[in-house]
Amino acid sequence: MQPTVADRIGHIATAIDSIRDITAGQTRESFANNLVMRLAVERLLEMISEASRHIPTDLEAKEPGINWRRLADLGNWYLSSDRR
């Protein structure tokens, strides 16, 4: 069974919370020097990107401050470039 829109929104919220937890107390330098942390955050961003692709247009319109197209494209950007 395919995830519902509510499931997808939950996935986004959980991934955001996880990124906040993982990066709490980190400096830019400590984050940059921690490969495992960077890979975890990258994967969570990919999950957010994928889930965002399944949010209906009418719900996207309720959050005009979010650039939904850019968010959806983020996963492709990570996959198409050598970010490591």
Rank of each mutant, 00 (worst) to 15 (best):
M1A: 14
Q2R: 12
Q2A: 14
T4F: 01
T4P: 01
V5Y: 01
A6N: 11
A6V: 06
D7V: 10
D7C: 02
D7E: 12
R8K: 12
R8I: 04
R8Q: 08
R8S: 03
H11G: 01
A13W: 04
A13S: 09
T14R: 15
A15G: 07
A15Y: 07
D17F: 08
D17I: 08
D17A: 14
S18M: 15
S18Q: 15
I19K: 04
I19G: 07
R20G: 05
R20C: 12
R20W: 11
D21L: 10
D21N: 08
D21I: 06
I22C: 10
T23V: 12
T23G: 06
A24P: 01
A24Y: 06
A24T: 10
G25T: 07
Q26C: 15
T27A: 04
E29P: 03
E29Q: 15
E29D: 15
S30D: 13
N33T: 04
N34W: 03
N34P: 11
N34T: 13
N34F: 08
N34H: 13
L35P: 07
L35Q: 05
M37S: 11
M37P: 02
L39H: 14
A40E: 14
V41M: 03
V41T: 12
V41L: 09
V41S: 07
V41C: 15
E42R: 14
E42T: 14
E42I: 08
R43G: 02
L44F: 12
E46F: 08
E46Y: 13
I48G: 08
I48N: 00
E50I: 02
A51S: 14
S52M: 04
R53G: 15
R53M: 11
I55Q: 00
P56W: 15
E60A: 05
E60S: 03
K62R: 10
P64F: 08
W68M: 00
R69K: 08
R70C: 01
L71R: 00
A72T: 07
N76E: 09
W77Y: 08
W77R: 09
Y78F: 13
L79R: 15
S80I: 03
S80Y: 06
R83D: 04
R84N: 12
